[in-house]
Nucleic acid binder design. Structure first.
Lengths: 140, 140
DNA sequence: CTACTACCTGAAGTAAACTCCAGGTCAAGT
DNA sequence: ACTTGACCTGGAGTTTACTTCAGGTAGTAG
């Protein structure tokens, strides 16, 4: 049921310092304590941390994650405003996805064409417009 | 052909300070100068900046972008090593895409179910309570 | 010549998200 | 009783990506 900070750290891959930091900035609710003052985390805290990690890996800032979490916690209370936030976020995610897709395509292309066996990699020179690489004299 | 720093700033939406900063950290090659010492940027610099902006918006750090640029500039010289970098990057982008998709799906679901008209939003409580939707141990 | 603006430089400051540190406490083991 | 190890706190330090600042120059306008 309840775990110590180091157990949660091991479980999530976050450091104990980070957990305390998240608590400080209110991303995590203050957990219960033992008689001696040690933090005791519960399943829902860990679930919350997993959510945070996922959101973070996707590029949300901690501030944004805070909003998402509050959203998650107040289902109906602020439905309208909350829906707006979610919609905005949703739009951002979609945009991000589109950008990522284009970057993926570009890397894909680069990898396909520039296999390291031929003598020249036309796409790269094309990409850069013209001669950036070989010709510059005085720079670095 | 050549533009001043403020022109490039206007064109790219970056600040002149940022352009000088990019030069300092060698993301941009040192541009030519007027007799009086002012920077003169060329088309290829702007193209490079656009590349940087795209890569940045997708979540690459400036350090990573530096690598991508060097990659782009040395087509064959270091084909092998370079291919590795690109492949790694490619894998990362794919992973990022997968994560983003899952977040998008989650937000989608949230938006669909929690329309702000009903009294309760079951998915939210589910998400937070205990049975985290897709919680799998060892997923990091 | 003076004013003004755009530009220059090196250096210091900022925000986000940690990370590390010093000094202190608590419960358990020997 | 003493030591050890995990934990506590408040605060300083780190990295990234800029931004701001202070003081100075180049070229143009009046």
């Amino acid at each position: 049921m309840s775990r110590t900070i180091s157990e949660v750290a091991a479980e999530t891959g976050l450091s104990a310092d980070t957990l305390r930091y998240y608590e400080k900035i209110r991303l995590l609710p203050a957990p219960g304590r033992t008689a001696g003052g040690k933090r005791l985390y519960r399943d829902q805290d860990v679930a919350r941390l997993r959510f945070i990690q996922r959101a973070k890996s996707v590029g949300f800032s901690l501030a944004e994650i805070g909003k998402l979490l509050r959203f998650r916690e107040n289902p109906v209370k602020s439905s309208r405003g909350v829906r707006e936030i979610a919609a905005t976020k949703h739009a951002q995610v979609k945009e991000q996805l589109a950008l990522l897709h284009s970057v993926e395509a570009e890397l894909d292309l680069l990898l396909q064409i520039c296999r390291g066996d031929s003598d020249t990699c036309p796409i790269l020179t094309t990409l850069d417009g013209d001669t950036t690489a070989a010709s510059k004299p005085g720079s670095r």
